[in-house]
């Protein structure tokens, strides 16, 4: 999630990050999320995913991009064979440019993702200096977690 936040901060004007919350894998969490997981385990037991955990997670990791919820049939998770995690870079034409596959042992190719963005998506000249400090309206839109449309 640290990598995601870093991508969000550095490439906010070059790419759109979309988080699809799929079935939870049951891995260890950190900080306040541990409490949430424990409460959800106590109250809901076996579950596909937790809406509350998704909300708290987005807040905890300070992720402001849109978060979509996969349905109980795991439609998107199955479509992309994503469980427990998968990252895909989709170019402006809607074609897959880079795919992590199913990362084994957490080996997500973050460097490849950064390199691809750096090489394939030129930073808008007028916005180069704004990457670290996005304008207020855009920051506001991002903080709402809504879909940002240009």
């Amino acid at each position: 999630m640290v990598h995601l936040r870093e991508l969000q901060e550095n490439y906010v004007d070059r790419i759109q990050i979309v988080f699809v919350y799929i079935r939870e894998a049951g891995h260890e969490t950190e900080g306040e999320l541990k409490k949430v997981v424990a409460e959800e385990d106590r109250t809901q037991g076996q579950r596909h995913s937790s809406l509350r955990l998704a909300r708290e997670g987005m807040k905890h990791y300070r992720l402001s991009f849109p978060c979509l919820l996969d349905d109980a049939d795991e439609t998107v998770s199955r479509l992309y064979r994503a469980f427990p995690m998968r990252l895909l870079l989709i170019d402006a034409e809607g074609k897959i440019a880079l795919d992590s596959g199913l990362p084994l042992y957490g080996s997500v190719p973050w460097d490849k993702i950064r390199n691809w963005i750096a090489q394939s998506v030129p930073a808008p000249a007028s916005l180069t200096n704004e990457n670290k400090n996005p304008p207020n309206d855009r920051r506001q839109a991002l903080s709402n977690g809504g879909v940002v449309e240009d």
């Binding site: 999630m1 995601l4 991508l7 070059r14 790419i15 759109q16 990050i17 979309v18 988080f19 699809v20 919350y21 799929i22 079935r23 939870e24 894998a25 969490t29 995913s49 809406l51 955990l53 998704a54 909300r55 708290e56 997670g57 987005m58 905890h60 990791y61 849109p66 978060c67 979509l68 919820l69 996969d70 349905d71 439609t75 998107v76 998770s77 992309y80 994503a82 427990p84 995690m85 998968r86 990252l87 895909l88 870079l89 989709i90 170019d91 402006a92 034409e93 809607g94 440019a97 993702i113 963005i117 394939s120 998506v121 709402n144 977690g145 809504g146 879909v147 940002v148 449309e149 240009d150």
Partner: peptide
């Protein structure tokens, strides 16, 4: 899929917006 924020149904195409730019699709959980 519905958004976490308000439950409105959103497609990948919608998310990409009218001036499409690359999308990093993260399929994961916490």
């Amino acid at each position: 899929l519905p958004t976490l924020k308000d439950g409105a149904l959103v497609s990948l195409k919608t998310v990409r917006g009218s001036k499409p730019k690359p999308v990093l699709l993260v399929l994961s959980s916490f």
